[in-house]
Design a protein around this nucleic acid. Structure first.
Lengths: 233, 233
DNA sequence: CGGACTTTTGAAGTAATTCAAGGGGAGTGG
DNA sequence: CCACTCCCCTTGAATTACTTCAAAAGTCCG
């Protein structure tokens, strides 16, 4: 990936979009390049938050683990999205672990540099506000779902969100574009892999979804939406 | 409350702290004053996000409601905190409802004005990033708790958080400084008022807490912390 | 073709909700 | 000052949605 391609991509990221080309070039010049193999961590929960990254290609999973080893998935990050937001405001350590799912290419800046960039370019600081505001909002919605909805609805919501974020049109329906195990879905929906498995089996029987080893395809979006939105829980 | 007092307070808010006095004066001049009576809403879920506010005195509760009327409490806002973050980045509507618990005094700015202020004063934009980053982080923690912990621990965590945020030292222990019903606690911990009531009764029997009509006092912080942190769920 | 990981499915167990009823405090109005 | 009323809280009993436990069947990769 050459320098020019990077600049084009940089202008489309959630955090740098709207900045003039000359500014993007400066930013690019300050960046450190990083490439991760599948399964490699970008940073771990508790590490000092010294770097901020954007994803150029590939995908990361951000998780949070309790002291007794239980885990939840905070979110998946794809191209153009930001990783390590804590470094944006000088927070002390990363609240979660970011792990590459595939080969993943990133650009990174130290927290001092990214703070300096934001200070000089209000547009970028405003983008950061928008990114964090949106993520905060997403979490409010998930918290509400987890508090008030029964599992089947939560699983439906989870799959719909993933389909929207990383759905790929195929001949038979919308396929989630990355490997996704029952365990992963459980860690997003706040349940167990057993319940996810049972639920997907039932939906498969009804022709709503197709699924296999770490694969999920949505056949009937509207029917799944109906399950997610039905008033009776 | 006169103009000077407002300026002093303004410099201590999470969003304007660190700005020079002259800037604070300009910001103050652009603000609209607002006072709410107990129970009055500042804005409702779904309202256009046209204004951003800071709390001068009093307290707000921010809630989110589902279509079928179930509700969760997103957070409480006290003096110096910000309400209506959506207006910071030009989001279209408020994701929750903010209601005054007592008489509450606020200052407000239109989204256009606050965006302009942030553009001109990077310090303030950076504060906004920090505020939203912190709130996002708080939500991650709550989501993890809700996913992985049993109710008793969740209730303990909820009370500890409230005690930290709005605890008042009294002769007998730390009292939550505002009226807090069993229902309120349930809506924060993701359970029912019945379970909260039973749990508090048990704790009261053991001398950990005292409670009454919409009142909670923590007697033994360490014991409550132990419940919140114990490895076995 | 072996071995590790993922998924499925049944059966048992249980934590917490739901249903139901009663009791107590605070404020109001006579 | 007392009685009435409205909330809020408590507590028992029944129910259930989901987890936990257990075992077997697929599926992918070297």
């Amino acid at each position: 990936m050459d320098r020019q391609v990077n600049l084009d991509i940089l202008g489309t990221t959630e955090i740098f979009r709207g900045a003039p080309a000359s500014v993007l070039a400066d930013i690019r010049a300050l960046a450190m390049r990083k490439t991760l193999g599948a399964g490699e961590p970008l940073f771990r929960q508790g590490d000092p938050a010294s770097m901020f990254y954007i994803v150029l290609s590939g995908r990361l999973r951000v998780t949070q683990t309790t002291s007794d080893g239980q885990q939840i998935i905070i979110r998946y990050l794809g191209p153009g999205e930001s990783a390590g937001y804590t470094a944006l405001y000088g927070g002390d350590c990363h609240p979660g672990t970011a792990t590459a799912l595939d080969v993943t290419e990133l650009l990174g800046w130290s927290s001092a540099i990214i703070a300096d960039i934001m200070s000089k370019h209000p547009t970028i600081a405003m983008n950061a506000v928008a990114v964090l505001g949106t993520r905060y909002h997403d979490m409010q919605v998930r918290l509400r779902e987890l508090s008030t909805e029964k599992v089947e609805r939560r699983i439906a919501h989870t799959i719909l969100r993933l389909a929207q974020q990383a759905g790929r049109r195929t001949a038979r329906g919308i396929e989630i574009a990355f490997p996704l195990s029952r365990q992963d879905l459980a860690e997003m929906a706040g349940t167990t892999l057993h319940t996810v498995s049972r639920t997907l089996s039932a939906w498969e029987e009804q022709g709503l979804v197709g699924s296999g080893r770490r694969r999920v395809i949505v056949y009937k979006m509207d029917a799944l939406t109906a399950i997610a939105e039905e008033d009776r829980d």
